[in-house]
């Protein structure tokens, strides 16, 4: 396997909260230009793993490489350079409540580019149209439904057309139609913009629709890391149960 093809590489990652071990020697990778889904039952450490990938948590031990760089060793300005190539979509959107949807989406553009206000506004409109939120551009997060918030969060995450997109349960709690629409959008990101996407999910229907590569976690350990097709024929009981009962 050619390692340079992997934008995300984690080796022997062990971490937890206080003295509770959540991730135990996790080694995974996410191939470039593919959609990787981190899946597993609730509480298995999916979100914790994702938080490590954007350095919101510090590991007890192990290595995390993004774009070939060891992020646990980078100082803040160096890591910020990496973060500018990453879009992150949080579970509940995490939109800034004091700002309108347009202002939220424009944050990365205002902060990390020298574009003028007119161009920024146009880019914001394009991103919001892409997630079908053009009509809600000046609304505040409190005036949006859960699904709309997630789509606005996706628009903000892709504002800079990052080569790497992380998402925490993008389809959770959405109706099947909205969920399928969001999946199509993520597929478009991969196909048209060449984005590498790493999502946390346990929505089997969504996983079957979009995943190229899956990482199956169980109680903080990796049960499987590889292409979706192989996961379903690997003969791992828990993985089989997950797909058959989901």
């Amino acid at each position: 396997m050619n390692e340079s093809r992997h934008i995300v590489e984690v080796s022997d990652l062990t971490s937890g909260y206080e003295d509770i071990r959540v991730l135990d020697n996790v080694s995974i990778h996410a191939p470039s230009n593919q959609i990787t889904i981190i899946l597993g039952s609730s509480g298995c450490g999916k979100t914790t793993l994702l938080k490590h990938l954007i350095r919101l948590l510090q590991p007890w031990s192990g290595s995390i490489r993004l774009f070939g760089q060891e992020i646990t060793e980078l100082d803040e300005p160096e890591f910020n350079t990496i973060l500018r190539k990453i879009g992150v979509m949080f579970q509940n959107g995490a939109l800034l409540g004091s700002m309108s949807v347009a202002e939220n989406v424009s944050i990365p553009l205002e902060q990390h580019t020298d574009l003028n206000d007119e161009i920024i506004r146009k880019l914001v409109e394009i991103k919001l149209d892409l997630v079908e939120l053009g009509h809600a551009i000046d609304r505040y997060p409190s005036e949006l439904s859960g699904g709309m918030r997630k789509r606005a969060a996706l628009a903000r995450a892709i504002a800079l057309d990052p080569p790497l997109l992380f998402g925490d349960e993008p389809s959770a709690g959405l109706d099947p139609v909205t969920s399928a629409g969001l999946d199509e959008l993520i597929l478009k990101m991969r196909d048209q913009l060449g984005m590498t996407v790493v999502l946390v999910s346990h929505e089997v229907a969504s996983i079957k629709r979009i995943a190229d590569h899956v990482i199956f976690l169980d109680r903080g350990k990796v049960l499987f890391c590889g292409p979706l097709k192989e996961a379903r024929s690997a003969g791992i009981q828990k993985v089989d149960d997950f797909f058959s009962k989901g």
């Binding site: 954007i54 995490a94 409540g97 902060q111 990390h112 903000r156």
Partner: peptide, 21 residues
């Protein structure tokens, strides 16, 4: 209350993920 709400709703994490302190 503003900052605490931002912490609870992951808004501060979202800022960090956008390379903002």
């Amino acid at each position: 209350s503003e900052i605490a709400t931002m912490v609870v709703t992951e808004e501060t994490d979202a800022l960090k993920s956008m390379a903002l302190n």
